[in-house]
């Protein structure tokens, strides 16, 4: 007996159909067609220009004429280690580390709650609350914080009302973290950065925690581990890739930012500002490129250390 399907009219033989037949048979061709545009974008437009720019760091600038001397030299890179420049690096990396740590400490409980305890409605509210700050203008938020942090601003006022005025004064009187007011201090800068980048820490942590199967947590308890022990030996190691992913965001975003330090910070420069002024006003592209290498190297170091500590073992 002939199956009925053979009696059905043959599909129309068009060019499009022949093309899809070809792509089905030779799926490598399909992969090529899909990948070429993004590879061009990523490889040439993005990475290519980045490397061309970073390549400038082996050139130097003629101090008299201000023109770029296109001869390979390590002098520009060595300039990074001059005390004034090295201070900028240390300052920026310290701020980024503080921001990352603060984001992780604040973000983890929120991500943990949303991943393990929140019902569907609470989870929707959580996503909304985490994402919403990303929808408004970055500059508006920073200026908003400037007002909150100002000497006569809301934070100072609330601290005063709560009788915490002296504590705030004492904090601001501290060297390094202090300043004339929160809005002109490293403390303020770290607070604003933490506020800005917190979603980038929470979302990957939440995703990692969601992926920890409930049965693993139950198995740990079943084998005699108290909840604290289960957290340390099972949940945290499995969530670590998410924490590291979040840290990559908060760390690199802080390393590269130059607007927050300009509005909230002190007169001391951070890396982003250094790059900005060097390649803009000063026209010192080689040194600017050398500075730009730093975040990449710092991130590479960070990832190597994270890998060494076994952060990616669970991946």
């Amino acid at each position: 007996m002939i199956p009925a399907i053979l009696d059905a009219p043959a599909p129309h033989e068009g060019t499009l159909r022949r093309l899809s037949d070809l792509l089905v048979r030779r799926h490598n061709l399909l992969v090529l067609i899909l990948l070429v545009p993004p590879l061009l974008w990523l490889g040439m437009v993005y990475l290519g220009s980045l490397f061309v720019f970073l390549g400038q760091s082996i050139f130097s600038i003629d101090e008299f004429s201000g023109t770029i001397v296109r001869e390979p030299t390590l002098a520009t890179l060595a300039e990074l280690f001059r005390p004034a420049n090295f201070d900028i690096l240390i300052r920026t990396v310290s701020i980024a580390a503080a921001v990352t740590l603060l984001c992780a400490i604040i973000g983890f409980p929120m991500a943990y709650y949303a991943a393990r305890y929140a019902g569907p409605r609470a989870k929707a509210a959580f996503y909304l609350a985490v994402m919403m700050p990303l929808w408004s203008s970055y500059l508006v938020k920073i200026y908003g914080w400037k007002l909150l942090l100002a000497k006569e601003g809301a934070i100072g006022w609330i601290a005063g009302r709560l009788g915490l005025g002296p504590a705030l004064e004492a904090w601001l009187a501290l060297p390094l973290v202090g300043g004339p007011s929160l809005s002109v201090s490293y403390t303020g800068m770290v607070l604003v950065f933490t506020y800005l980048w917190l979603p980038f820490m929470i979302l990957p942590m939440h995703a990692a925690l969601e992926r920890v199967p409930r049965s693993l947590i139950e198995a740990a308890g079943d084998l005699g581990a108290s909840p604290g022990r289960t957290f340390r030996t099972v949940i945290l190691p499995l969530a670590l890739p998410g924490v590291v992913a979040g840290a990559i965001f908060t760390f690199s975003l802080t390393l590269g930012d130059y607007i927050v330090p300009q509005i909230i910070g002190t007169s001391a420069l951070v890396l982003g500002q250094a790059v900005y002024t060097l390649q803009g006003t000063a026209g010192n592209i080689p040194l600017s490129a050398a500075f730009s290498l730093v975040p990449i190297l710092v991130m590479a170091l960070f990832l190597t250390l994270a890998k060494k500590t076994g952060a990616f073992d669970a991946l």
Binding site: L216, E218, A219, D222, L223, A225, L238
Partner: peptide, 25 residues
């Protein structure tokens, strides 16, 4: 003690450390 349907082995630990987990805690 339970043998779970999906086995619930800890992916970040070796087989030996998985088995020894109950003794470790």
């Amino acid at each position: 003690n339970t043998v779970f349907q999906d086995y619930a082995l800890f992916p970040h630990l070796s087989v030996g450390d998985n088995v020894a987990y109950g003794l470790r805690v």
